[in-house]
Design a protein around this nucleic acid. Structure first.
Lengths: 226, 226
DNA sequence: TTTGCCAAAATTGGATCCAACTAAAGCATA
DNA sequence: TATGCTTTAGTTGGATCCAATTTTGGCAAA
């Protein structure tokens, strides 16, 4: 695992708390390497937005507010919406359509039995990732993908960061049902070349990560943690 | 001037042609520094999208197609559109509105005499930059600004990269007149809290950089290079 | 007791050094 | 002559070294 990846992990796990200034030597010792790879990694992480310059010298861990997280989600929404619209306008290959339909089928299979298991969450995460990757990959230009990937390093901005609360699998099940319908609508719009529609659907779909929780809670008291 | 900035310049000027593999030592000698700052700069430039990894070792200058350039422009459009919509929805301060109106006034002054000079181009570039910076700055969250700034390093994606063709100041004058009206519409929409409208206006405004040229050419033969 | 200045320690940026890996060139053999 | 192997030159990744700057801590004076 590269120094950059390990540092990303440490930051997201709170080993280095938000706002903390990172000393090159300290981090180098923590990771068991010399300063050189750490210095290189700091530059990468700075561009990714996880670190920020601390005055004239050094870096600190970037702190994210709730507003920032929502913003990162909206950025993903508009970028993925742009990608989907372009794909709809340029037309998609049958191979792409088949891959997307395969994702829909598997999603249907995951949700068919009416409730969620831990294994289902893993399967969904994989198919969801495949779904989004397929659309982004089919748009051709690398530029949009790059912009999204850079944004994905921010917390909760990635399309993968969906399920967290395993205490409330009931609510999460309903959430995935909504996500499944959204995926279906997106494929329908893509297949018919409906650029404007697919863009709006994709933008709304981005909100599934954090803004649907409060909508899908049947009743706080009727569903005790399982 | 930092190593990163000098390298950016060299790449955009074609000193290192697209697709060329960059040797650390070679670049270090060219810039008169040691390998260390060059290696650090390579990581930054990679994240900015100007360099890409060449296999397992080293980097090469990224090549951009016309489609990539258009894509980068659209990315700017949707991101700046998002920023403007958020600003409209959250409401803008009187100070912000005043700054924007000052930009409009200066734009009006620049275009009042009915034609362009070299000095006018500089003035427009400055006020245009101020206009866009003001809107982005007023939205609050740094996340969108970061996404835009990263995208701006790609060729022609920046809001500043407007005027190039000093051979055709007539056409460029008409282009700036359109840009001025777009700026005015954007401020109007912002002032009235019209989020959806300002987003669409901003997205269209992004195209002014390259897609309006063919629209504003009165007649290729009627306007010889001045 | 508080404030300001000076010195010392820590830390970063840049340069050099070493080892590992890649690629190219040359030689030998079929 | 062509192909394949070996050796060698080059380049990158990582470690260490040096200088410069910043920050911290202590001491003195008001």
């Amino acid at each position: 695992m590269s120094v950059v990846a390990r540092l990303r992990k440490s930051i997201s796990e709170g080993v280095y708390p938000a706002g903390e200034r990172l000393a090159e030597l300290q981090v180098a010792n923590d990771l068991g390497v010399s300063r050189t790879p750490v210095r290189l990694a700091f530059r990468t992480l700075e561009q990714e937005g996880l670190l920020e310059r601390a005055g004239k010298r050094g870096f600190r861990v970037r702190a994210f507010t709730d507003a920032d997280v929502l913003c990162a989600l909206e950025v993903r929404g508009v970028l993925e919406g742009l990608a989907a619209r372009r794909l709809a306008e340029q037309g998609l290959s049958t191979a792409t359509l088949e891959r997307l339909n395969a994702c829909l089928d598997e999603g249907h299979a995951v949700l068919a039995k009416g409730h969620l298991t831990a294994e289902d969450v893993t399967r969904w995460s994989a198919l969801n990732s495949r779904f989004h990757t397929t659309i982004l990959g089919a748009t051709g230009s690398q530029v949009i993908q790059d912009a999204i990937q850079r944004n994905d390093h921010l917390p909760f901005a990635s399309a993968d960061s969906l399920i967290i609360d395993t205490e409330r699998l009931g609510r999460e099940y309903r959430k995935l049902c909504v996500a499944q319908v959204q995926h279906q609508s997106i494929v329908q719009a893509l297949a018919h070349g409906e650029g404007a529609r697919v863009e709006l659907l994709m933008r709304e779909h981005a909100y599934i990560g954090i803004r649907y929780d409060e909508l899908l809670e049947l009743d706080p008291k009727s569903e005790p943690p399982e």
